[in-house]
Design a protein around this nucleic acid. Structure first.
Length: 565
RNA sequence: CGGGGCGUGGCGCAGUUUGGUAGCGCGCACGGUUCGGGACCGUGAGGUCGGAGGUUCAAAUCCUCUCGCCCCGACCA
């Protein structure tokens, strides 16, 4: 393509609203424009990059035998009511009514629609397995869209769904997807980590996320050199053992005036935080619960959710706490709370601990010598948030925690949708059994944005070759006829070889062409200019920022070689 | 939803405290000189200052309401 005929509105300055690098560069390089909060238009360069991503995805999905569909984005409410997600999705779902008042929504994901096809058409175990996918627009009314393309309200997703007879089949479909995803992200040039994840509102058991490490991301990933990696929401770690005073003592009231926080009590009583009990009060499905953590630990609410088997909970208000405990936060504890209608649950780190310190449920007082299992009882769960440098539960080495962006997610759904929507087949014995399902998603624009986050410099974007909008840019500086002819020859030859090539034939000064070239990030640039008089052209590799002078006759060969580097 | 910030030509901003009828840089158009790292000179176009209402002789500026966008938090398949 000729630059003079392409719409590439580059910007010299960074638009004020762009904070993260990928947003700034994609705007400046003329890939995207914003239409509203979390709503973006994709201009020709972005289309080219996204189409390359799509193509890679299609090839890899076909490779595992998946079949492409194209389903509606507009869904009748009844479908979502069947699975309960019409309510469950809450305000995150865009809802609308048609002219007759019928309720509809814009699809956030397509389990319901794909399952509705499956239940109507799949009759026999002989029809299984099926791997179905599509590349579709999704709508989510995010409470807070942000960071350019990283969190938006309309985006493109490759979503696929597997339908199997049994758990073994699901395992197979799931692993096929894992492999396909690895190949997709490898081919897109991304560095990523596969982490154990929560399945959240998708339902289901096993789930892994494909994460790209970047500070622009919103997730926290815990990882270890041994290969262990998990989303912070479900990460586990070991604890350095603590030896308590073994003596058998009874709780002892101690005056702790104005000492409320763990820190204050620790200093006041000269006792380490790890020997205190942190008491948190939550309201879980409208019933009060006392949650006990070690003094120096943080509660992980995802783990609480799993332990309580509900996501309906919130911290109690100060008034509620006073009514229940007769004291304010800062002086709370489990002793004497048995049988008062307050559920007591505790983190595993408190199990078998002796002679600890907790609030006395009386303002300005704490209790010494509180022993788990004797002075209070509790249901124990893993509720602790992993901290950086905790020992890895697999190998004991210190864990690393970093921010990351989720670009893909695979789930074993199990029977959640097939049961609620009655998608069944007859098994070999002629018995009707529900289909077991998996679902798998990749965010296309996120791949594009993640690549920019990962690969850029002060001058602009440095695209991985596989998803660059063009692979080669011919920067024509000279105005002489023979230079133009050379440019044209190279351009035609590359096109004939199927190499995407952009010819900068604009009537612009060299400086402008060079700056724009680096901004849009094309991997290989050929400059035809003043060196041409000595029969030379220049080849510039964007990633290494390396300039090579080569004979004009060899230009084509050298370009191909540069692409291979 | 809570907290904070910002809306002034296409982009980046000043002007708002102290009301007096809108300015700078970039970009854009035309002419000329330039032409290897975002050129220079000259001329010019382009803004009901997010919107509505109010105060005032007079509002970008003060007051009320409202809309939009960004950031932090809450939330997040």
């Amino acid at each position: 393509m000729r630059w003079s005929q392409l719409f590439i509105p580059t910007l010299r300055e960074v638009p004020a609203e762009a904070e993260v690098v990928s947003h700034q560069l994609l705007l400046r390089a003329g890939f995207i424009r914003q239409l509203g909060a979390g709503i973006y238009s994709y201009l020709p360069l972005a289309r080219r990059t996204l189409q390359k991503i799509e193509r890679i995805i299609r090839e890899e999905m076909e490779r595992i035998g998946a079949q492409e569909f194209y389903l509606p984005a507009l869904h009748p409410a009844e479908l979502w009511q069947e699975t309960g997600r019409w309510t469950e999705m809450g305000d995150n779902m865009f809802r609308l009514k048609d002219r007759t008042g019928r309720e509809l929504c814009l699809g956030m994901t397509h389990e319901e629609v794909f399952t509705s096809i499956a239940r109507n058409e799949l009759r026999s175990y002989r029809d299984l397995p099926q791997l179905w996918y599509q590349i579709q627009v999704k709508f989510r009314d995010e409470p807070r869209p942000k960071a350019g393309l990283l969190r938006v309200r309309q985006f493109t997703m490759k979503d696929s769904y597997s339908f199997d007879l049994d758990a073994n089949g699901l395992e197979k479909s799931y692993r096929l997807h894992e492999q396909a995803y690895r190949r997709i992200f490898d081919r897109c040039g991304l560095e990523y980590t596969v982490v154990q994840a929560e399945s959240g509102a998708m339902g289901g058991s096993e789930s892994e996320e494909f994460m790209v490490r970047t500070d622009a991301g919103e997730d926290m990933v815990v990882s270890c050199a041994c290969g262990y990696a998990a989303n912070l929401e479900r990460a586990v770690s070991c604890l350095v053992p603590i030896t308590d005073d073994p003596a058998e003592r009874s709780p002892e009231l101690v005056h702790t005036p104005q000492q409320k926080t763990i820190q204050e009590v620790s200093e006041f009583l000269k006792v380490p935080k790890s020997r205190q009990i942190k008491s948190l009060v939550y309201v879980v499905e409208s019933k009060p619960a006392l949650i006990l953590m070690r003094g120096d630990h943080q509660l992980n609410e995802s783990k609480l959710s799993r332990a309580m088997e509900t996501d309906q909970f919130r911290p109690a208000t100060p008034d509620e706490i006073r009514d229940l405990f007769g004291a304010d936060p800062g002086s709370l504890g489990p002793v004497g709370m048995q049988g008062k209608g307050v559920a007591i649950i505790a983190d595993l780190s408190l199990q078998n601990r002796r002679n600890l310190i907790c609030g006395a449920n009386r303002d300005h007082y704490h209790l010494l010598n509180v022993t788990a299992g004797i002075d209070f009882t509790a249901a124990f769960y893993d509720l602790r948030r992993v901290e950086a440098a905790d020992p890895c539960s697999c190998c004991g080495r210190p864990l690393d925690i970093f921010k990351a962006l989720e670009v893909g997610h695979i789930f074993k759904l199990g029977y959640k949708y097939s049961r609620s929507m009655k998608a069944t087949v007859l098994d070999p014995e002629g018995k009707e059994v529900p289909i077991i399902m998996g679902s798998y998603g990749i965010g296309l624009e996120r791949i594009m944005a993640a690549a920019v986050e990962l690969y850029h410099d002060e001058a602009g974007i440095v695209w991985p070759r596989s998803i660059a909008p063009f692979q080669v840019l011919i920067t024509l500086l000279g105005t002489q006829e023979n230079q133009k002819q050379l440019a044209k020859r190279i351009y035609d030859a590359l096109n004939q070889m199927g190499i995407d090539c952009l010819l900068d034939d604009r009537d612009e000064r060299p400086g402008v062409k060079f700056k724009d070239a680096e901004l849009i990030g094309v991997p290989v640039r050929v400059t035809i200019g003043k060196k041409f008089e000595q029969g030379k052209v220049e080849i510039f590799c964007r990633s290494q920022r390396e300039l090579r002078e080569v004979d004009a006759d060899e230009a084509l060969l050298e370009i191909i070689r540069a692409l291979g580097d």
